[in-house]
């Protein structure tokens, strides 16, 4: 199960990198960036995951076997932070893309090259 999830994370990242680098549409690039980050988030989540793990909350019942059986809570906190960052970057990128479209009347990144050299 965990191995399959690792493969899924790597496939997500590869798809994201492919979309960011090769697509010429600005919106598609931003979507690719999002897929890439989602792959990283999945990767982070799997790092802290355990087969048949319990939620990382200490109670009187589970304090004996808590350390060996609970999943790692830290990556989840990291992913939460990272999602917020990713959301704001995506929002900013989309706003800037609309403003670029207003000025250039295109979202083809090969035609937005007035600043070459």
């Amino acid at each position: 199960m965990i191995v399959i999830s690792y493969y899924a994370a790597v496939i997500f990242m590869a798809l994201g990198i492919y979309a960011v680098v090769s697509k010429e549409n600005l919106i598609k690039k931003i979507i690719g960036l999002n897929i890439f980050t989602m792959g990283i988030h999945l990767f982070l989540i799997i790092i802290g995951f355990k087969e048949n793990g319990i939620a990382p909350i200490i109670t009187a019942l589970n304090s004996n076997y808590f350390v060996i059986s609970s999943v790692d809570p830290l990556p989840q906190a990291l992913v939460l932070t990272s999602i917020v960052i990713d959301l704001s970057v995506t929002a900013l990128a989309l706003i800037t893309a609309t403003l670029v479209y207003d000025k250039f009347k295109t979202i083809d990144t090969n035609k937005i090259n007035k600043l070459e050299g």
Partner: peptide, 24 residues
């Protein structure tokens, strides 16, 4: 203006791509 938005969108995409790589 036109050059500012162009530089900004390029910076956003290159920058967030590289910092995502940093996160990996």
């Amino acid at each position: 203006d036109k050059p500012a938005f162009e530089s900004s969108i390029k910076y956003i995409i290159i920058g967030s791509f590289a910092s995502s790589i940093f996160l990996i």
